[in-house]
């Protein structure tokens, strides 16, 4: 019953958004409790990244409310409690002369605040975050000289370094090799289990996702499903066909991991089925 009494980290109520005339998100309702690991799936162009931008206050909803840690996103100021790895994380200017250390340090800047500088304890945290993603030996290498997957790890370290309570990852494993993807998911699971960090993971990797997450949301303009992973498994075929318009082949990963206790209360499964 780990999650059932936990407070909401994120509450989305009746949110709609359009770019100009094109409606991208329609009447989205969603709650995410502290400590849950939510996998968000949906086809290309279904509005996943747009939704993440709304959560991060980068875009403003046309209708509805979004609350982060209980306060409306418009007035939320505590951004260091939220970490974000963008889908286009490695589309930065690759000629930029910054080291891995310098890039990961950026993750602390918001927390440290204006007119203050990096202290010893910050440097220690930066090194720990770099070690956490296994990039110690590249600490002082130029970020532009790393491979795409290595860069992605650095950006993940940057998101982790401020010890966020909510970590939002938009297709973070693009360009990361299969082995590293598994390590990466293991790492996320560990963060979720041991540090109780709430995770929202946008991905197309439905197989891997359903092995690791506790909750699933299917988005395609509307929220087609949102609820417990096990409920999703039951309706998976139907959901996927509804969303993608065809049967999606899912390669099963070995279920060698222990899973969370999934006995959620049913009232937090605000599944919007269509």
């Amino acid at each position: 019953m780990k999650n059932s009494a936990a407070p909401y980290v994120l509450e989305v109520k009746n949110v709609s958004f359009s770019y100009g005339k094109q409606m991208v998100l329609e009447d989205i309702n969603m709650q995410v409790r502290e400590g849950s690991f939510l996998g968000l799936v949906g086809p290309n162009g279904s509005g996943k990244s747009t939704f993440m931008k709304l959560l991060l206050g980068l875009l403003k909803a046309d209708k509805g409310n979004i609350e982060l840690f209980g306060s409306p996103v418009q007035s939320f100021r505590d951004w260091s409690r939220i970490g974000f790895v963008s889908q286009k994380a490695n589309s930065f200017n690759s000629g930029f002369p910054a080291t891995v250390f310098e890039v990961v340090a950026m993750g602390l800047y918001g927390k440290i605040g204006l007119f203050r500088f990096l202290k010893k304890e910050h440097k220690k945290k930066i090194k720990e975050a770099i070690a956490q993603v296994g990039m110690e030996q590249y600490m002082h290498k130029n970020i532009g000289r790393l491979s795409g997957g290595q860069q992605q790890r650095v950006f993940i370290a940057r998101a982790l370094v401020s010890e966020p309570e909510l970590l939002i990852l938009d297709e973070p494993t693009v360009g990361v090799d299969a082995d590293s993807v598994r390590n990466f998911y293991d790492m996320l699971k560990e963060l979720n289990d041991k540090k109780n960090i709430t995770l929202i993971l946008v991905t197309h990797d439905i197989g891997a996702m359903s092995e690791y997450v506790t909750d699933v949301a299917c988005l395609n303009k509307c929220l087609h499903f949102h609820g417990d992973k096990n409920d999703f498994e039951v309706n998976r075929e139907e959901m996927m066909t509804a969303m993608y318009g065809h049967k999606v082949n899912v390669i099963e990963h070995n279920h060698s991991h222990d899973h969370h206790d999934h006995s959620h209360d049913h009232d937090d499964l605000d599944g919007v089925r269509s």
Binding site: L58, N93, A98, G110
Partner: peptide, 15 residues
């Protein structure tokens, strides 16, 4: 530095 490197992320972290 952060703004020059990655404007979107800088804005997200409240800069």
């Amino acid at each position: 530095f952060f703004l020059s490197f990655d404007e979107e992320q800088a804005v997200i972290s409240g800069i």
